[in-house]
């Protein structure tokens, strides 16, 4: 019963996540960028843009300029998330790749820094009046969701161990449509339930910032409007326009 429920939940969640994010990316991709609007000074070449995006995506360069506290908590949160994701690959891959094995000891503690980062962001949201003003209930819930995921995960890692061999069998079974029983311990069910919610809301929420940043015109456009003619797609070409008549003098 429980196994069936979670198996179906994960099929649905995965479909919404992958389909939804792909649809958003398709939408962004197909929406025109009618003008060359990088925030300058900006690199003038595609290679320069790649370097700018690299610094932005991994090191949050702009945020560093903007606010050091947010930067610290955001880096704690996101860098930990990377490690956690790499570590979790062991539950979906057989045999386990070396990089995942290497990440394992760090990945375990990354759970702590992940929760710490989320708590820091939550504290700012609650106690900094400017940030409180711009926060909707969903902004708090999103952080609580992450804290819940992190906390339930930490419970399994450090307090109440789960039969991870069975968990892995469950996920490999999902992928091969050969369902295996899911261990029914509370932290695991909470953990998996929250992760499924996270996947479902991803394409409908601000979590879209993750794929979205790659499409941001102020960051991903090379600064070359004089060098390269980039016409506005929905305006008629310039040889089909009428000019204002000259003024009587």
């Amino acid at each position: 019963m429980l196994t069936t429920l979670f198996a179906l939940l994960y099929y649905v969640a995965f479909a919404i996540f992958v389909g939804g994010v792909a649809y958003r990316i398709w939408e962004y991709w197909n929406t025109p960028k009618p003008a060359n609007i990088p925030t300058t000074p900006a690199p003038t070449t595609r290679l320069g843009v790649a370097w700018r995006m690299f610094k932005e995506v991994l090191f949050f360069e702009s945020l560093w300029k903007g606010n050091k506290w947010i930067w610290i908590f955001a880096q704690l949160f996101h860098a930990s998330l990377w490690l956690i994701i790499i570590r979790h690959a062991r539950y979906f891959l057989d045999p386990v790749p070396t990089i995942v094995v290497l990440a394992q000891p760090f990945g375990k503690y990354a759970g702590l820094t992940f929760v710490l980062g989320a708590l820091g962001l939550l504290a700012r949201r609650m106690f900094v009046p400017r940030v409180r003003y711009i926060s909707a209930p969903s902004d708090y819930l999103m952080l609580l969701l992450f804290i819940g995921i992190g906390f339930s995960g930490l419970m399994m890692t450090f307090v109440n161990h789960t039969d991870i061999v069975a968990v892995k069998a469950f996920f490999l079974g999902l992928m091969t449509f050969n369902w295996q029983p899911l261990p029914s311990t509370l932290p695991l069910l909470v953990h998996l339930g929250l992760v499924a919610i996270w996947m479902i809301i991803f394409p409908f929420s601000k979590l879209l910032h993750a794929p979205g940043i790659f499409f941001s015109p102020t960051r991903n456009m090379p600064d070359n409007p004089r060098e390269k003619f980039q016409p506005v797609p929905w305006l008629p070409p310039v040889d089909q326009v009428e000019y204002d008549p000259p003024h009587g003098s």
Binding site: R130, I134, L208
Partner: peptide, 24 residues
Amino acid sequence: LRGKFRSFRLFLDICVKCGACTDK
């Protein structure tokens, strides 16, 4: 406008309300 400007569509979607801009 949402169909004509990627900036408009994207910027409305992806703000995470981090607060970095609030004092700028």
